[in-house]
Design a protein around this nucleic acid. Structure first.
Lengths: 223, 223
DNA sequence: TTGTCAAATGTCAGCCACTGACATAATCTC
DNA sequence: GAGATTATGTCAGTGGCTGACATTTGACAA
């Protein structure tokens, strides 16, 4: 297999040639996949076609992606990875919802540039539409999101010094947070020509609404 | 295809012989599938094996279930169907979260008997474990849950006279509600010998917690 | 009962996602 | 440059899923 190069963490600057080559084929594969998915549709694109267009064997494709869906969701995975990293670096003094909010809005630009290193933005936007209308992709996405929410909850619980097995508040908060994101991006997806900047504002607004209901610290003793 | 007999709505008493036969094979298939999945595991069970154990062709299996996952999630689908029906019948005077809560707790027993008409309860409980540990099933489940949450949000919005495209509160509330359910059932799944009754209590408790933050009506003018 | 229609099932051929095993070729390390 | 690592190609095979068509089975009326 192509070593365990996490999709979310491209090697810093210049690792060995081998690593750089792997990163290139991975990017080429995701890009080719997205290109094909957006033109021909997800199910009407075969893995062989993707592999062929990068001049790589089908087997190699499956060494980079455990399945066809993963290639389609590579960018979203990248985004969530960035978000999680940002969250971990929020100062411990911020109350939960504020940390989530700031992590999201604070890395918005970083994320955009990171995406752009792999695919042009409009390709990603078209891909977004395909995902929204392809059952297999929706399922795969939901699953990943559930996993991510799990990790986020764990991080929130850690920050607040709670036992996530007992106290459900982190989970509930994150579920609500996720709900806002999903609702907002669902809305965004429908207005085809909305800019990314607009979405940022939209999300920010909705998060404010949520805040009214859930904001505030949970710590028993305050520092 | 075997007509559009909704899985969630078994014919009342005695429809034609044809209908009854269909229902019987459908139940037999789900039961056989669950039996095999719980003993052999999901991926190590082939559709041919399921079909064969009911003495039906593989093709017929796929006329009842659009894919292997659906057979594994048939019971959960049944449950969510019941819940949604119950929600629609809650009096319009109840505020949102209370309606959700009452719909859930009020149909608990109905649901249990409905399940029992198809499979023994302990089989369902074992199946629950399998789902929790099988990626493909988690993905399929998440997807269905997302769809259900969507429908629930729509119903809440309707009750409250809100436009779901504009006002995100229904979505957020339902997301939080779903988060509680998922967290509670996740917890339930881990304590192998917990009774269903215990879970009912657990869910009820956690919903109370949530209530403190979100309960109350949203209507602009109260009746 | 019987004839007719519609719906359910079986059979068969085929596509495609995905995997294990082994051979080959490209980097890395010294 | 030799030898250890690691990525890639090739090949054969399994299994999910579908379309097409023939066959059976229950529904309904004459």
């Amino acid at each position: 297999m192509p070593g365990t190069t996490a999709t979310t963490q491209p090697a810093p600057g210049a690792a060995g040639l081998r690593e750089r080559k792997k990163q290139r084929t991975r990017d080429a594969l995701t890009r080719a996949a997205m290109e094909l998915f957006t033109t021909r549709g997800f199910e009407r694109t075969t893995v062989d076609e993707i592999a062929e267009s990068v001049e790589v064997s089908q087997r190699t494709f499956f060494r980079y992606f455990s399945n066809k869906e993963q290639a389609a969701l590579a960018v979203e995975e990248l985004i969530e990875g960035h978000f999680l990293a940002a969250l971990r670096e929020r100062p411990a003094t911020e109350p939960p919802l504020e940390a989530l909010r700031n992590a999201l809005l604070g890395t918005w630009d970083d994320v955009n540039t990171a995406i752009h290193e792999v695919v042009p933005l409009d390709l990603y936007m078209r891909m977004y539409q395909v995902i929204e209308t392809t059952p297999a992709l929706l399922a795969a996405r939901m699953r990943r999101q559930a996993e991510t929410e799990q990790r986020i909850s764990a991080e929130i619980a850690r920050r607040e010094g709670l036992d996530p097995a007992v106290d459900l508040r982190p989970r509930v908060l994150v579920a609500a947070f996720g709900g806002v994101i999903r609702a907002a991006s669902g809305y965004w997806g429908k207005c085809a020509d909305d800019s990314v900047e607009q979405m940022r504002r939209s999300v920010a607004d909705h998060l404010n609404t949520l805040g009214a209901a859930l904001i505030g610290g949970w710590r028993t003793q305050d520092t």
